[in-house]
C-alpha cells in the first residue's frame, strides 16, 4: 500500500474489476490523486479507463481492492461519494425535451441543492458555459458542442469538489474541443475543482493535465507529469518511413543497419516505418542516410521529433495509442 495522505481526494489500491463474462477490465491498479489536481488517465480504447471511472463513480461494483473518493469508501458509502462528485460520461447525456435551464434545474433538485440558491446558481452556470442566450430552448435543438457544455454544467450544479470526465471531447469539432478545454481549466484553476479526465488524445492530456497515469490492458504502465514521462525517453526520435505499401523485410534490414550506428538506441519497427531514439538526433542524420544508402536502402521520408506522450506510450507498450486505426489503414488493400 502506498502512503495515504489526507489531501488525496482519490486513493485507489489494487483495484480489480472483473465483468460477469470473466473479462478483467481493471487488473490491480493503484494510484493517488491530490485535491486540486488536474489528473489525466490515458490509454487506448478498451484499456480500462471507463471501467475505472464507472467504479469510482459508484456505477459499477469493484471485484476486489480498495478505493476511496473524497474521503468515503466507494463500495461502502456510495451516497457520500455521490455528494462530492460530478460526472460527465462519454456519451453526451441531456434531456432533449427539456430546455437548457430545465435540465440544470432538474439535476440541481436531484442533487438536493436548496431551492433558495438553485435559480441563481443555474443562471451563473449558464453564463459560464455560454448558453444563457439559448437557455429557454429545448436541448434537442442544441448543437453537439452546446449539449456537451450543458452536460458539463449539469454535473457542476451541486458544486462538487471532484469532477470526473470520461473522454469528454470525443466527437467534438476542434473549436468546441478547445472551448471545453478552456472551461475545464477555468473550473480547475478558479474553483479549485479536482479534475479526473480520461482521454485517448495525447495532445489533450499533454495540454491539460498536471499529472498523468497511463493504463493499458487494465494495468497502470506509467505515471508522472507529462514532462517527466517524456524526458524519461531520453532525447529525440528519428523516424524513417518507407513506401506506403509496407515492406517488413526492408524495414527489418534497415533496423539491422541502423543498429550499427553508435548513439542510436531503442529501435522499434512497424510495417512501413522505423523509429529510434538519440540524444543528438540531428547530428546523426547524415550518417544514418549514408549508411543506409550504402546498403541500397532509401527511405521515402525522414523526420526528427522531440518526444510526445504518444512516443511515451509507444515506448511503454510497443505500439501507438491509436494502433487499432493505424493497423486498419495498413492492412487495407490499396485501391487502384
Amino acid at each position: 500500500m502506498t502512503a495515504y495522505h489526507t489531501d488525496d481526494i482519490i486513493a485507489v489500491d489494487d483495484l480489480v474489476v472483473v465483468y460477469p463474462d470473466g473479462t478483467r477490465a481493471v487488473d490491480g491498479i493503484s494510484f493517488r490523486v491530490r485535491a486540486g489536481e488536474f489528473f489525466g488517465f490515458l490509454g487506448p480504447n478498451g484499456a480500462g479507463k471507463s471501467t475505472t471511472i464507472k467504479t469510482l463513480t459508484t456505477l459499477l461494483r469493484m471485484t476486489s481492492g480498495y478505493a476511496s473518493v473524497a474521503g468515503a469508501m466507494v463500495d461502502r458509502d456510495p451516497d457520500e461519494v455521490r455528494r462530492s462528485i460530478g460526472v460527465v460520461s462519454q456519451d453526451t447525456v441531456v434531456d432533449v425535451d427539456l430546455t437548457g435551464r430545465e435540465n440544470l434545474l432538474l439535476f440541481g433538485r436531484l442533487q438536493h441543492v436548496s431551492s433558495e440558491v438553485l435559480e441563481e446558481r443555474v443562471d451563473q452556470l449558464l453564463r459560464v458555459v455560454e448558453l444563457e442566450d439559448v437557455a429557454g430552448k429545448p436541448a434537442g435543438r442544441y448543437s453537439g458542442g452546446m449539449r456537451k457544455r450543458l452536460d458539463l454544467a449539469s454535473a457542476l450544479v451541486h458544486e462538487p469538489s471532484l469532477l470526473f470526465l470520461d473522454e469528454p471531447t470525443t466527437g467534438l469539432d476542434p473549436q468546441s474541443r478547445a472551448a471545453l478545454w478552456e472551461y475545464l481549466e477555468t473550473i480547475n484553476r478558479e474553483k479549485g475543482v479536482t479534475i479526473f479526465l480520461t482521454t485517448q488524445y495525447m495532445e489533450e492530456a499533454d495540454r491539460l493535465c498536471k499529472r498523468i497515469a497511463i493504463i493499458d490492458h487494465g494495468r497502470l504502465i506509467g505515471e508522472g507529469t507529462p514532462g517527466e514521462l517524456k524526458s524519461a525517453l531520453g532525447g529525440e526520435t528519428i523516424e524513417l518511413s518507407f513506401e506506403s505499401s509496407g515492406n517488413p523485410e526492408l524495414v527489418a534490414r534497415a533496423a539491422k543497419v541502423l543498429g550499427t550506428i553508435a548513439g542510436l538506441s531503442q529501435l522499434s519497427t512497424a510495417t512501413s516505418s522505423l523509429s529510434a531514439s538519440a540524444a543528438n538526433a540531428e547530428r546523426l542524420l547524415p550518417s544514418v542516410i549514408t549508411t543506409l544508402a550504402k546498403e541500397d536502402i532509401h527511405p521515402s521520408a525522414l523526420s526528427v521529433s522531440t518526444p510526445t506522450l504518444d512516443d511515451v506510450f509507444l515506448r511503454l507498450t510497443g505500439r501507438r495509442i491509436r494502433s487499432d486505426e493505424l493497423d486498419r489503414r495498413t492492412t487495407e488493400p490499396f485501391l487502384q
Binding site: T57, T58, S89, V93
Partner: peptide
C-alpha cells in the same frame, strides 16, 4: 439506452 438513467444514478437521487 441514452445514458440518462446512469446520469441520474451518479447523483444523490
Amino acid at each position: 439506452n441514452s445514458g440518462f438513467l446512469q446520469k441520474m444514478l451518479v447523483t444523490q437521487v
